[in-house]
Nucleic acid binder design. Structure first.
Lengths: 173, 173
DNA sequence: CCCTAAAGCTAATGGTATTAGCTTTAGGGC
DNA sequence: GCCCTAAAGCTAATACCATTAGCTTTAGGG
């Protein structure tokens, strides 16, 4: 996909028109503008990552589920560097499809937490930590923020081990 | 500062020229272009956040240091929403000032980890987790990614509690 | 008092987004 | 088979932003 080839911020109407072999203004017959394009991509990418996370969680629980879902999340970000940032766009409240996709993604994490006995407000907090941790990692990684000569895969594994430990001691709200 | 008022991505040469009451091309007498402007902002902001983190760590250790530094980090991001993203730009390898600032910021986290008995490669991993966790949180927060009606400050505190727990069980590489 | 270097300006070029209005084209109904 | 319409495409024009080139002003040192 074009977004993955050129990067999220360079996904421009001009680039898309060039790719499609069409004049730029012609695109306005299909999309309202550049922001609407990013919005459409967000819905697509959010649904995709929700699928990926759900599939990774299937048939697993506890630490195994946590590791699998975290790895699947990071793999999606690596495989789709242009789509991934679109998954972080706040869901459009007027788009049921977008809201549903976002909820499915969160649901995959919620399911893991049930395996740790974490529920209710505590699960909201724990889900936020999951997202912050994994999103922060892949974002810093993509930005070249890890300069030291230490294996990044190893750091990720250790981070998820740390997250597992945190969840085991999470307790109620 | 203009960056904080208009946002990092809208810090444009045109906006800066307007603010300074000067024609746009005149800025090229002071800065090489828009990328150089962002680079200069990155150096400034990185040095600032390094100061903030160092100050928060001073005179504290262990969990108290962790909490203080994490809170200071998040407060900086809130206070300077336009400067904060600039702190995440990978340091320019040719700019000693930038490299030194980035190293000071990392150093503040490293110092905390010594209090947990975490050193060497394990400390590199743990530092990466700190950055991922806190950066991810403030980024999602700024993007409006936390939609549920659960207090965000509370989630942050619980996350840092979780990080504390992870570090206490961190062990060697 | 003059001369130079810094700082500013206008003009011109090229890229992206957007709107307006015209043209082509493919398909359905008669 | 023919016509009519709606979708999809196009060109032209406008508006920003970034960048380069080349000219002008200005302030300070010799």
């Amino acid at each position: 996909m074009l977004a993955d080839e050129v990067g999220h911020d360079r996904l421009t109407l001009a680039a898309l028109a060039g790719r499609l072999g069409v004049a730029l203004p012609s695109l306005y017959k299909h999309v309202r503008g550049v922001d609407a394009l990013h919005q459409k991509l967000a819905v697509l990418a959010t649904a995709e990552i929700a699928d990926v996370l759900t599939a990774a969680a299937a048939g697993r629980s506890g630490g195994a589920a946590l590791r699998a879902v975290a790895a699947a999340y990071r793999a999606y970000a690596h495989r789709h560097p242009g789509r991934y940032p679109a998954t972080q766009r706040a869901p459009d409240p007027t788009d049921p499809e977008h809201l549903a996709a976002a909820e499915r993604a969160v649901g995959a994490v919620f399911a893991i937490l049930r395996g740790y006995g974490v529920e209710g407000d505590a699960a909201v907090d724990a889900t936020r930590m999951f997202r912050a941790t994994v999103h922060g990692f892949v974002t810093l990684e993509a930005a070249g923020g890890f300069g030291l000569p230490r294996d990044v895969d190893r750091s990720f594994d250790r981070m998820i081990d740390g997250l597992d430990l945190a969840y085991r001691g999470w307790g109620p709200g």
